[in-house]
């Protein structure tokens, strides 16, 4: 248990060191407007990362959640446009439900056929993206068609400040949702039986079964929650950027997985904390967004993210080897 604590502390230290470094290179980093925009960029990736964290603790990997996010977002927004419906709560419930149901398919296939999650989720991702683009549509829903209530919801701020020149900038209220989801997942993982069963399954699936955990239910919990979070995050994303693009999120799964690994979760399962993941997401988003501030060409972004991922997995691999089994 102590190991988890110290791992999170190391990640936090890395984060602080990176912040100080970026701040030294360009003091503009510390402007409140920059910090606020950083926090805003955390929300969608962070929500998805919480789902991926669950999957990774259970010893699996998920590359289908971005497709589920697109399905939740695009189906809901198109339906809203078609029905001329304006609202917030029902659409978000629907997007969450769509993601959750798609996650159920993942769970079913992985559990029933005892198949490697990577390959199953590659397949379901292709199926879902193909269905959305092939049957529902390929055109963007632009700001002039987007439901007003969604846009209004997405631009809600909890704090609005004024710059010297009179322009205002704010801290998005969506951060509250993210924090609430993070606390919720943390409590689920640490305080409930189903949460403990995820760790048990990830550490040793066979042992978890023999101790009496219903592993089928654990799988359903893990993949449905991951799907539901992705569906919700998808719609949230479109209400924050006032656009629903059915080709969105391509390649984002790698960033999210990188963030979760950066946060100390082990791909072999059994390890990972919500705090670590939240910090990992923050580090990733911060470094991506600060490349311009640091005067680094944006074409280097992929190299930097890939390098960070490799460094993070190398460190966790070393840690996993040293840790007593």
């Amino acid at each position: 248990m102590k190991l988890f604590g110290s791992a999170d502390a190391i990640i936090a230290l890395i984060l602080v060191a990176a912040m100080v470094l970026i701040g030294l290179i360009n003091p503009a980093f510390w402007q409140l407007s920059n910090i606020f925009s950083l926090l805003k960029s955390n929300v969608v990736i962070g929500l998805m990362a919480l789902g991926v964290l669950l999957v990774m603790i259970s010893g699996g990997i998920d590359v289908s959640f971005t497709a589920f996010a697109v399905a939740g977002m695009y189906l809901v927004v198109r339906t809203m446009v078609a029905l001329d419906y304006d609202g917030v709560i029902l659409p978000f419930l629907a997007a969450t439900l769509i993601g959750g149901l798609l996650g159920l398919i993942n769970a079913g296939i992985i559990h029933k056929f005892n198949m490697i999650p990577l390959i199953v989720t590659l397949g379901t991702a292709s199926v879902v993206r193909g269905l959305v683009l092939g049957f529902v549509g390929t055109s963007n829903v632009n700001i002039n068609q987007m439901p007003d209530a969604l846009i209004a919801f997405g631009r809600t701020d909890i704090l609005t400040l004024e710059r010297a020149n009179g322009a205002t900038f704010g801290l998005t209220a969506m951060i509250v949702i993210y924090v609430a989801a993070a606390i919720g997942i943390h409590l689920l993982l640490t305080r409930t039986m189903i949460g403990r069963s995820v760790y048990a399954y990830g550490a040793d699936a066979e042992a978890a079964k023999r101790v009496g955990f219903n592993t089928g239910r654990t799988m359903i919990f893990v993949y449905c929650t991951a799907g539901a979070l992705a569906g919700f995050a998808g719609l949230l994303h479109s209400s924050m950027i006032w656009l629903a693009n059915p080709r969105d999120f391509v390649g984002l799964e790698l960033d999210v997985i990188a963030a979760v690994v950066l946060g100390g979760a082990s791909i072999f399962g059994g390890r990972g904390t919500v705090l670590g993941t939240v910090l990992g997401v923050f580090i990733l988003v911060m470094i991506q967004n600060s490349l311009i501030l640091m005067g680094i060409d944006t074409t280097w972004q992929r190299v930097v993210v890939g390098g960070m991922l490799i460094a993070a997995v190398a460190v966790t691999a070393l840690r996993d080897r040293r840790a007593p089994v």
Partner: peptide, 27 residues
């Protein structure tokens, strides 16, 4: 080297190097 030397899982190692290679293409 990453997979056998550093004992990184192939999925993650190649995910990372894939990003680096595509990044180098962009550069």
């Amino acid at each position: 080297l990453l997979i056998s030397g550093l004992k990184i899982t192939p999925i993650l190692a190649t995910l990372g190097t894939g990003q680096v290679f595509i990044g180098l293409c962009l550069v």
